[in-house]
Simulated assay, not measured.
Amino acid sequence: MSDLLQVRNLVKRFESGGGWLGGQKQIVRAVNDVSFSVARGQSLGLVGESGCGKSTVARTLLRLIEPDEGSIVFDGQDIRQASAQAMRALRRRIQIVFQDPYASLNPRRTVRQALAEPLYVHKMGNARQIAEKVDQAISEVGLPLSALDRYPHEFSGGQRQRIGIARALVLDPELIVADEPVSALDVSVQAQILQLMERLKRDRGLSFVFVSHDLGVVRHFCDTVCVMYLGRIIEHGPTGQVLDHPLHPYSRVLRDSSPVPDPEARIRLARIEGEIPAPTHLPPGCTFHPRCARAEANCAQQVPPLNVLAAGRSAACFYPLLEEAALAG
């Protein structure tokens, strides 16, 4: 299966402090040498604690935030090197669904106007063809045609997110970047939206980059997963294997900290100490070593590379949990 998206050595830094308030400028390393790929028709999850850089990665893929270093290759074309005209064409093929369905829709535009606008911008048909495309998109996400002439404030959160998905679909994209698309919704509505996205992935052959902090959602939707910590990917592999048998100590902590909907379940939490370091003052070596029970002297001196440790499994750790991963076969 060929890769639709290839990201290599992606870096994004932000400046903090300084300005008219004074103080010393500091560099926030939001994304620090991130690499991954997404196959056609597959979904890749980016998970980690708040502030780990996963949403920044998502936005750099569409150049909503300009990366500082690295390459983003979509279907053989380097997005970072694309001209404004080429980028406009690429954005027809790559769309984003934002986290907050209350903020991502213009309150002064009807749903019909919101869905038709990108079609007019990209000159995708005459008025009749655009109207048909809008009708098709709103029906595909499970809303009636009568919704088209209403305004965003007239809908619930789940309905607004369906509208956001419909807006992403009207251009017939090949890749959708979903940035926490269900985190602001009730659990029952989350399930409906995930089922909708799963159906769209199957019927349209869509690829997804799916950002989430909810491991249950990622387990349900994503084929592969990347675990991020302080701007780096520290583990990658098939979702079920990574969540059931993590290789990196942080992945285990993240897994054990996720609630399990089973009153009979008893989980022994992995030991973890200390606080997350500030992104302006990252520790040397492995950034997780100050909180890791398995850390040795070399962990504080060298950055562990993301090495392949088994078929389809990679981890950036000098002392991975091989004895706990049960990697037979």
Rank of each mutant, 00 (worst) to 15 (best):
V38Q: 05
F36R: 06
E49R: 07
A82M: 15
E154R: 14
Q159N: 04
D75H: 14
Q77Y: 04
G125P: 06
L171T: 14
G158M: 00
G76T: 14
G70H: 11
P107K: 07
S37N: 15
I72G: 02
T110G: 09
R112G: 06
R128E: 14
R88G: 08
R109K: 15
A114M: 15
S146F: 00
D149A: 03
D100G: 11
D149W: 02
G45Q: 08
D78R: 10
R92E: 10
R128C: 07
S43M: 03
D135V: 05
D75V: 14
Q161H: 05
E49C: 12
F155T: 00
L105N: 06
S146H: 02
L171H: 05
R59F: 09
T60R: 00
K123R: 14
S50E: 10
E154L: 10
K54E: 09
Q136N: 11
L115C: 09
I165A: 01
D135T: 09
S55P: 12
E140C: 03
P67E: 13
S35F: 12
V47K: 03
G48F: 01
S35Y: 13
V134K: 01
S50T: 14
R150N: 05
R91N: 03
G53E: 11
V73E: 06
A131L: 08
S71M: 06
L61F: 09
V97N: 02
Q136S: 14
I138S: 01
G48C: 09
P144L: 04
E140T: 05
P152N: 10
D135L: 11
G157E: 01
L145T: 00
S104A: 15
L148A: 08
G53P: 11
T56D: 10
Q42S: 15
Y120G: 01
A84I: 10
A82T: 10
T56A: 08
P118Y: 02
A127E: 13
S71P: 02
V134L: 05
S139V: 02
G45Y: 04
K123H: 12
L119Q: 07
F98T: 04
P118E: 08
R40E: 12
E117D: 15
K133C: 12
I165R: 01
S37I: 03
K123F: 02
P118V: 03
R162C: 01
A114G: 11
V47P: 08
D75I: 14
R108C: 04
R93I: 06
R92W: 04
A58H: 03
V170M: 06
H122W: 05
Y102N: 10
P101H: 09
G48D: 06
S37T: 15
G70I: 08
A82P: 00
Q85I: 11
K54I: 08
